[in-house]
Structure formats: C-alpha cells, structure tokens
Design a protein around this nucleic acid. Structure first.
Lengths: 345, 345
DNA sequence: TTTTAGCACTCAACTAACTAGAGTGCTAAC
DNA sequence: GTTAGCACTCTAGTTAGTTGAGTGCTAAAA
C-alpha cells in the first residue's frame, strides 16, 4: 500500500507529465505547491515507486514518467474529475444543433462535439439494429425481378435490403406474405425475426405459398444479417498533435485501428458494461495489438433507461483524464436526454 | 517545343524519380538503356529543361526532379499507360465480391479494391440522390407525434426522413396526402420534388387538407434537403508510406482533406467531366490549399450510359501514373458494367 | 529514525568541425 | 555538336566535445 506521501508524489508526477509530456524530475515535484518535501526525499520515494512499478525511467539521467500501473492508480484513486457547473452543462447542451431529426444524426453530432471539446479523437457507436424491435415491414417492387424490402424499427431506424424476386411468384402472393409477417412479427427484435419465422410461422406460411423453396429463398434475403452498428469517429487527425505519435509507425497502426472496417474497436466499445458511469481503459488493458500508449475512455448512453450505445475518447495514455472523464459524464447524460426527447416527440 | 532528345531525357527522369523518390543525376539518366548520350550532354539538356520549367533542383549539388509542369508534360505526352490483357481484366473483375445487392455496396467494394491494387488512397463518390427519380413514397407512423417518411428512388436507394406530425391532422388525411403525392410525383427527380409540389400541386392539395399551414409544415419536413452524395475512402493510411508525407504537417492537412465532412473533395470529384476517360490533376491544378505534392486521378462511372459517380486515386505528385491510369480505365468500366447488371436484375 | 544538503556520476541533446560523395557547370578537346 | 575532365558546391553522415538536467549515495542535521 502506498503512503500518503507517495500518493501525493505520484499524483504530482502524473499531473505534471500529462501537462508537459516531459519526464518529471525530483526538483520540479518538490517545488510543486502541495508537496512540501525536498528534492532528495522525493528522489528516495520515486525510487521506491519505480520499484513498485508505478513509475518508469526512459533512461538513467532522465526524470520519471508514470507507468501504465501508475496511470491506473492515478485514475482510480488520485484524480478529481472536473465537475461542471449548471451553466456549463447548459452551455454544452446548447452547442448541439437544434434541428436534429433522427438518432443517427444526434449521435454523429455528439461524436463531433466530443472531439472538439476534448481535442482528442472520438469514437461513438450507435444502437445495434439487432436489438431494435420490429415496427413495420414494407416491400416496394423495383423491377420485374427485384424489390426493396424495408424494415422500420421501434426507434425509427429504417433498414433497406435489396432482394431478388423468385421466379414464378406473383406480386400479390408476396404482398400477402409481407402482410402476414407484418402482423405476426410486430415487436419481435430484429435479431430474432428469422428464428421466429422458422419456428412459429413455417406451417402457416406454407398455406399461403405453394413453393416453399421460393418462399424461403425470399425470406432468407429479407432477413439476411442486417447492417452492424455503425461507428462514428471524429478528429482522427487530432492524434497527430500528440507528441507520442510523432512516430509514423505508431500513427499508422492507430489510424488502421480507426479505419472503420475494423471490428476490434466496435467490440471494445460494446464491451463497456452499461450504466456504470465512465470507464477508463489504459494501454494494454485495451487488448488490441499496438494499443500501448493509447487510452480509451468510454461511457454508455441510454434511451428510456436502456443502454443503446457508447461514446469513447481515444488519446495517448498521457491523457487529461480529469477533464475528459468529467466531460464524458456530462455528454453521455446529455445525449441520453436528447435521444429520449427526440424519441418521445 | 521540346526536341526528341529532351523528351527522352525528361521521360527518363520522371520514370526514375517516380520509382526511386530520389533526385536523378545526369549519370543515371545517361546510363539508362534508351538514352544514348553522355552524362555531360544530358547535363546540358537538363539545364535547358530546368530553364524551361520542366525540372527543378532541390539544391545545387543534387540531381533534378520533375516540376509540376514536368509531370504534366510527362502525363500528357510521354507515358504509355499500362494496358491490361483480357485475362487480367477478368481477374480484376473476379476480385469483386459476388453477393453484392445494392449500389452503395458495390461502390464501397470498388473503393477498397482500388486502394489495394494501387497502394494509394482511393476516393469514390456515389450517385447523387438528388438526381434520382422518385419511385415510391411511404409514411410509417411511429408515435402519436412522429412518423418516418421514406423515399425510394428508381435506383433502389432508400432515404428516410423523420417527421413531426402537425397537431390536429388525422392519420387518414395524411395517408390520403401521401397517396396523392405518390401518384403525382412518380418519376420526378428528387431535387425537384419540392418545386413541383409548390408549383403544380398546391391548389389540389388544399382540397384535401383544411389547414394549409400544417400541411406545408409536414411537406417541408418530408422533402427537406436530402443527404448529399456520400463519399467512400479507402487506404487512407497508405499515404503514410510515401516518403513525401513523412512531414507530419503535410500529413495532417491531407488527412483533414479526406475527413469525410470536408466538401472540397466532393466538389473536386464531381467536377470531373463525365465520360472523357481518365483525368489527371497534378499539384496546384487541384485548387485546394495545401494540395501541392498531391495528384488526383479521376474517372467517372456510369449506369445505363449516364455518368453517376466518380472514382479517384490520391497520391503524391510522384505517382505511378502509367500503372494507375491504366487501372482506373479498367476499373471504371468494370464498375459501370456491374452496376448496370445489378440494376437490370 | 527521518529528512535534507552535497557531490560525483550518467546520459541525452546540442554544437562544431571534419569527411565523403554525389552532382553540377564550365572549358577544352574530339 | 558531343564528350571528357576538373574544380567547385552542397548535403549527409561521423566524430568529439560541451552542457545541463537528473540521479543515487553518503553523511550531516533534525
């Protein structure tokens, strides 16, 4: 266990290093207001802290920098998240455009704002369509052989699926089919549609359509795995401002991580346990190759008290945790509120 | 006008520099197979070419590199685009996933493949929704106060718009309204919907709905400016492999250019005059700040012989023009073919 | 026993001087 | 008109020396 003095020194080193990005020496720690010990004392404590794994030294004659474990302790026990006053919260609220009409838009705005306010890269993951409940199905014929099949969910999300029409199945039969599905599948979550059709409706459906094969061909297309939850990133280039990413190699692996098609970041955001406030993942705790030197701060947002997505800020491990954690708290609550309002309107 | 010998020398310098990224000296030009003159002769010609503005010298004792004007001449008069054989074209064709169901997907695949095959960053712009023609309108009530309004176009694109329902307007009235619009607006291009409603249908509509104000409120929302044409980029990080972008500052301005929300790149791609093959823009010819050292190669693609989008490859001015130009030609034709097939199915 | 002052030591970062090598421009010969 | 030769220029890389921040250890002070 750390003594009070050690905690104070670790705290001072973290704060200093986060601000300056330079290894912190014993003298500058000692000079800091709240630390009343001489440089020599600090040096002794620093040696102990290093031995315990909270600090590291780039080279012998340099100052110390926090290790991953050091940051962890700092985040968990030492920092005081910046608290925002009511007017500030209000001001942030007013930064969002007012004319938002659908959820995706609100989420995108959040991502942009988050990046602007923090000066880090933001990653936001929207609601997973698979969890929505079905509100309405619609089929719109396009050509003789194809149609667009539309799924509208309870959250107002519209998903399209282009389908090839099976030969020899009349439009009217298909319309009846869709009508039946519409009646029977209301309120079922998108991920279970297929299951329910196969389990509960197979018999009934055969009464409508002679060719079972054709029908299943059509259904398979309609209910084909839907678009995954989309991720929105903003301020990717802000990473370039951080001195630790001057190295092109690190930069490249980071950009690849954010390159959209990459699934790992999605999993990461989804893994944020819902509704336990703001979560901080530091360095290796993000179990992705090359994520050393990166920290991720996550908070989930809700719609009607149900967690439907997460906002994240990606930065160097040397991140302004106090500021960002406070801000994430404000913003995740704000977007939850705005989404609920939007949905209830 | 350049002499044959000067052309040959300029050509050799371009090819060499494109491959090596190092300034080219007189000796290496002279040694190149097709150039049969001594280094001294080459030096004299190089001095002339520099005076005419085709070459530049990083510093006195370095070799020469092509200037922007030099590249221009090289692209217009000296290079022989790589021609692809039938089997190669076929092989490229087979690289595309077969199970593509809608246009956006096909376009995205094209972008990815383009980047993989060239090792440069690709930018692809899809069809502008505004130019599509209306096929079907649909309104799906969500809550008491809101609904989703769906526009399906002739190309099978589905666009959603969330709308607030005006107070005191019954669902059935609104359904009649939508039905009427559906009949009257078929085949009108999306960009003109609003105009047509105001010009031709205003009188008729008032017969359906008592409150003109409420109705216009609803229509305004339905026909609000639709999503712009989306752009797809791939291989953004490939730029980092190019030695000219080791400079973080250049890198950042480039990434900002590609950051999606940026409109300038869209304008640029849209400005490619349709159907005149592959177009090359070098350095300043891209009239965007900081686009020195960048070249853009554009080709448009068509659906039913009508230009509906463009594919682009972004790289350093020191780009493998011969290879990329040939490839763009193949790929733009291939995607046009695939889109037409997709649409006709 | 704990804290602090003092001091020798280490190491990265900077500077200056030097060297090597690639490439040029010019002149004179072919 | 073309080419060989040569003096000159300039960058990039190397080495050596200097500076300064910071440490660890020891011994004195509290």
């Amino acid at each position: 266990m750390l003594t009070e003095r050690q905690k104070r020194i670790l705290w001072a080193i973290c704060e200093d290093y986060i601000e300056s990005a330079e290894p912190v020496g014993s003298r500058s720690v000692s000079k800091k207001n709240d630390v009343g010990f001489s440089a020599a004392t600090v040096r002794n404590e620093m040696a102990d802290l290093e031995e315990m794994g909270f600090l590291e030294q780039p080279h012998t004659s340099a100052g110390r920098i926090p290790s991953q474990q050091g940051y962890r302790f700092y985040v968990d026990h030492l920092l005081t998240p910046r608290i925002w006053g009511d007017e500030e919260i209000h001001a942030i609220h007013n930064l969002f455009p007012k004319d938002t009409t659908h959820i995706e838009q609100a989420i995108e705005h959040t991502s942009e704002l988050l990046s602007q306010l923090t000066n880090y890269t933001s990653v936001v993951i929207g609601p997973n369509l698979q969890e929505h409940r079905l509100r309405h199905l619609q089929m719109i014929p396009l050509t003789e052989h194809s149609a667009v099949f539309i799924i509208v969910t309870d959250l107002g999300h519209v998903n399209q699926q282009r389908v090839l029409l099976p030969e020899g199945m009349s439009i009217s039969v298909m319309e009846r089919l869709v009508n039946l599905l519409n009646k029977r599948l209301q309120g079922i979550s998108v991920s279970k549609l297929r299951l329910v059709v196969e389990r509960d409706l197979a018999d009934e459906l055969t009464r409508y359509v002679a060719e079972y094969g054709s029908m299943m061909f059509l259904l398979d297309q309609m209910l084909a795995p839907q678009q995954e939850n989309r991720i929105y990133t903003s301020g990717t280039t802000k990473m370039l401002d951080q001195p630790e990413f001057r190295d092109l190699h690190k930069m490249k692996s980071l950009l690849d991580l954010l390159d959209g098609k990459n699934q790992s970041i999605i999993q990461l955001l989804n893994s944020s346990s819902p509704s336990n406030g703001v979560q901080v993942k530091i360095g290796n705790e993000i179990s992705i190759e090359g994520a050393n030197h990166i920290s991720l701060i996550i908070a989930s947002f809700t719609l009607d008290s149900e967690s439907i997505g997460a906002i994240g800020v990606l930065g160097p491990t040397r991140m302004e945790y106090a500021k960002v954690i406070g801000l994430m708290d404000v913003i995740s609550k704000d977007i939850s509120k705005r989404l609920t309002e939007l949905y209830e309107k």
